[in-house]
Amino acid sequence: MAMKDRAQAGATSPERRRLLGAIAAAVAAGPAGVLAARAQPGGAASGSSDTRFPVRPITLWVPWPAGGATDLTMRLLADLAGRQLGQKVIVENRSGAGGTLAMPILQQAAPDGYTIAQLPHPALRAPHIQKVLWDPIRDTTPIIQISGVTFGLLVPAGSPLRSFEDVVAFAKARPGELTVSTNGVGTTPHVVMEELAARRGFSYVHVPYKGTSEQMLAVASGQVTMGINSNGFAPFVDSGRLRLLATLAEHRNRRWPNVPTLKELGQGVVATSPYGLVGPHGLPPAVVATLHEAFRTAMHAPAHVAELAKYDQELDYLNPEDYGRSLRESYAAEKRAAERMGLGRGG
């Protein structure tokens, strides 16, 4: 009798049939579908498309070593955004390959908003100078642009090189002896050095490092002649262990007003390497909006602004639409630059 009652209830309840149909569709869609169904208000599934997000922690991939300047600022940002979202934003590091190792993760991640990553500028350059299986435009969904970085040319405090012209003269007088460290092949510092060497007609030995801290220690100890890096060099300069020869920004840095820019030295180079957050391709607009609002609030929080200031960074906010446009423009510009400098895969 009980079985007959259940069958009759199922046959006479349109709402129950809709509920069962939604659950079946979610199961057919796999784990992501089940999660979406569970996230809907009022139970396992409902006819509403208004889903709750997030319902579990979010993973933010940072393609730089733990403990570095970018990692520290991103961890603070993640904590602040998590408070807005009501769920933890957990930072995971995957360093190496010039800051591009989060891209394969995004390419394979489900477009549900629970896997996002910092997108550094080198990811827009790498496909033009080496073979990769991912595309920074095709395989991502822009969420928000956050900031840019301050790059500098640095030598040991006791180095006889006191200007960029001294570096050029040294390289020309002693071919093969100028060693220059960067944070990886294809990164902005590496490309800048290639352009400077081509313009001024000198050669150098490239020494790539995975992270800022080990690179700056190598420069300070004299293991390399000069280093080019961002953000994390400030404590080494302020403590007197490194000498800052020039910066790569549009204007002089307020922290070191006596240090010239490469642009004002007549080298025609300006580099700030803006970065932001992206998700996998196909991220639903509602999820993008939720993440964007949380991180927009977080990035403007006084604590985050103060943390950026430690590394001479300022906010450089762009919404998803403008950030996407900027990424496409930069991607095309990097292709032209690689071809012009002979860094292309065919060059």
Results as ranks from 00 to 15, higher is better:
residue 129 I to Q: 12
residue 28 A to I: 07
residue 177 E to I: 04
residue 114 Y to Q: 07
residue 95 S to A: 13
residue 343 L to Y: 00
residue 8 Q to I: 03
residue 239 S to M: 05
residue 183 N to S: 13
residue 135 D to Q: 08
residue 306 A to G: 01
residue 334 E to A: 00
residue 271 A to N: 08
residue 254 R to Y: 11
residue 204 Y to N: 13
residue 190 H to N: 13
residue 52 R to Q: 15
residue 10 G to R: 14
residue 276 G to V: 02
residue 336 R to E: 15
residue 76 L to A: 04
residue 58 I to C: 07
residue 210 K to T: 15
residue 206 H to F: 13
residue 172 K to L: 12
residue 151 F to L: 10
residue 93 N to F: 11
residue 243 R to V: 11
residue 171 A to H: 09
residue 70 T to C: 08
residue 16 R to I: 14
residue 210 K to P: 00
residue 60 L to W: 06
residue 4 K to Q: 13
residue 210 K to Y: 13
residue 236 F to A: 01
residue 314 E to V: 03
residue 225 T to E: 03
residue 276 G to M: 02
residue 203 S to Y: 02
residue 48 S to C: 01
residue 158 G to T: 04
residue 116 I to S: 07
residue 325 R to Q: 03
residue 5 D to L: 14
residue 36 A to T: 15
residue 32 A to D: 14
residue 326 S to Q: 03
residue 205 V to A: 13
residue 244 L to V: 11
residue 187 T to V: 12
residue 242 L to C: 05
residue 271 A to D: 05
residue 98 G to S: 05
residue 110 A to Q: 11
residue 245 L to R: 06
residue 175 P to L: 13
residue 118 Q to C: 01
residue 273 S to E: 04
residue 45 A to M: 13
residue 168 V to T: 14
residue 262 L to N: 10
residue 159 S to M: 06
residue 67 G to P: 06
residue 269 V to Y: 06
residue 173 A to L: 11
residue 170 F to I: 09
residue 273 S to H: 01
residue 224 V to Q: 10
residue 243 R to Y: 13
residue 68 G to E: 15
residue 313 Q to V: 01
residue 71 D to P: 03
residue 332 A to F: 10
residue 41 P to F: 02
residue 108 Q to A: 15
residue 27 V to T: 06
residue 235 P to W: 10
residue 186 G to S: 09
residue 33 G to P: 09
residue 21 G to I: 10
residue 277 L to H: 07
residue 101 L to P: 00
residue 59 T to D: 09
residue 277 L to R: 04
residue 155 V to E: 10
residue 158 G to M: 01
residue 59 T to R: 10
residue 153 L to S: 12
residue 328 R to M: 01
residue 161 L to V: 11
residue 51 T to K: 02
residue 77 L to M: 06
residue 304 H to E: 01
residue 319 N to V: 00
residue 113 G to L: 00
residue 309 A to Y: 12
residue 134 W to M: 06
residue 129 I to M: 13
residue 101 L to T: 05
residue 116 I to T: 02
residue 157 A to F: 04
residue 66 A to R: 10
residue 135 D to A: 10
residue 204 Y to R: 12
residue 27 V to W: 10
residue 31 P to L: 12
residue 333 A to D: 14
residue 214 E to S: 12
residue 214 E to W: 11
residue 319 N to G: 14
residue 113 G to M: 01
residue 15 E to W: 15
residue 154 L to C: 09
residue 95 S to V: 09
residue 305 V to S: 06
residue 295 F to D: 10
residue 47 G to Y: 09
